Computed example of a mutant assay.
Amino acid sequence: MKHLSIILLMIVLISCKSEAQQEETSKKFEVQKTESEWKAELTDEEYKILREAGTEPPFSSPLNDVKKPGTFVCAACGNPLYETKHKFDSGTGWPSFDRAIENSVAYSSDMKLGYERSELLCADCGGHLGHVFNDGPEETTGMRHCINGVALDFIPKDKS
């Protein structure tokens, strides 16, 4: 009987969903398109990253080297996400920022590697950008927004 009680308790705990999880999965983004519309508008690589939460190989993005003033926008919808002044070289091989433009990103949970990570999404279209970690520069926010370069387009300040 004791074993049955433990098993039932385990089943109940495993099957519970918190309200936060429900809220995350039901979020509606301002930019809504069908998967076929996204496939028609995005390159295969952009689609894999932004719509299927893929990851580009480290050190593959030309945006790693961008240092001139400007704004990094979502490659899918053009939402302004990051500014060069908040970019830093994390040594990880992906464009890294210590913060996003206010209200430009949404957060979700990602368990793909077997542990919880904080996923970053474009707040306008829900496109997967990357993840946020707490190992950024301590003299600023202490956060590292580790972003797939494929998910971004860069607009130099003199062109905006």
Rank of each mutant, 00 (worst) to 15 (best):
H145L: 07
D98Q: 02
K87C: 05
L129A: 08
S160N: 06
E83S: 02
I147Y: 12
E116A: 12
K159S: 12
Y115V: 05
T140W: 08
T25F: 12
H86C: 00
T25S: 11
L42G: 04
S18C: 13
F88W: 10
H145C: 04
I101W: 03
I155T: 08
M143H: 10
L4K: 12
I155R: 05
F72K: 00
L152Q: 09
S61D: 04
N103Y: 09
E30V: 14
D44N: 11
S90N: 07
L152P: 02
S5I: 07
N64W: 01
K112A: 15
S108W: 02
D135M: 12
K48N: 12
S36Q: 14
E23D: 11
V66K: 00
S90C: 02
G149H: 08
F59A: 03
R51P: 05
V66T: 09
N103M: 02
E56V: 06
Q21D: 12
D158K: 14
I49C: 01
P57M: 09
L113Q: 01
W38C: 03
D158R: 09
M10W: 08
T25R: 15
Y82F: 15
F97A: 04
T25V: 13
G78K: 08
C77A: 01
P80K: 04
F72N: 00
C125P: 09
K87N: 02
H86F: 07
I7K: 12
V31E: 14
G126C: 14
E119P: 05
Q32G: 02
P95Q: 10
S118V: 15
Q21Y: 13
W38G: 04
Y115K: 06
S104A: 15
R51H: 09
S60D: 03
T92R: 10
D98W: 15
E119A: 15
G130S: 11
L8W: 04
L81C: 02
L81G: 01
S60R: 01
Y107H: 15
E41Y: 02
E116G: 03
V105R: 01
A106F: 06
K67M: 00
G130I: 10
G149N: 09
E30T: 14
M1W: 08
P137K: 13
K85C: 00
L63M: 01
T55R: 05
D135N: 12
N148F: 14
L81T: 03
Q21N: 06
K17F: 09
D98I: 01
G126A: 12
S61R: 03
L8N: 13
C74W: 00
E116I: 07
G127Y: 10
L81I: 08
N64F: 04
C122Q: 13
E119V: 09
G142N: 15
L129V: 05
I14P: 00
A106K: 13
L63P: 00
K17Y: 10
S60L: 03
F133E: 06
L113A: 06
L63G: 00
G149L: 07
V66M: 00
E46W: 01
C125H: 13
F133A: 03
I7F: 09
R51T: 06
T84Q: 02
C16A: 14
H3S: 14
F88H: 02
L50K: 08
P58C: 07
G114P: 01
E37L: 01
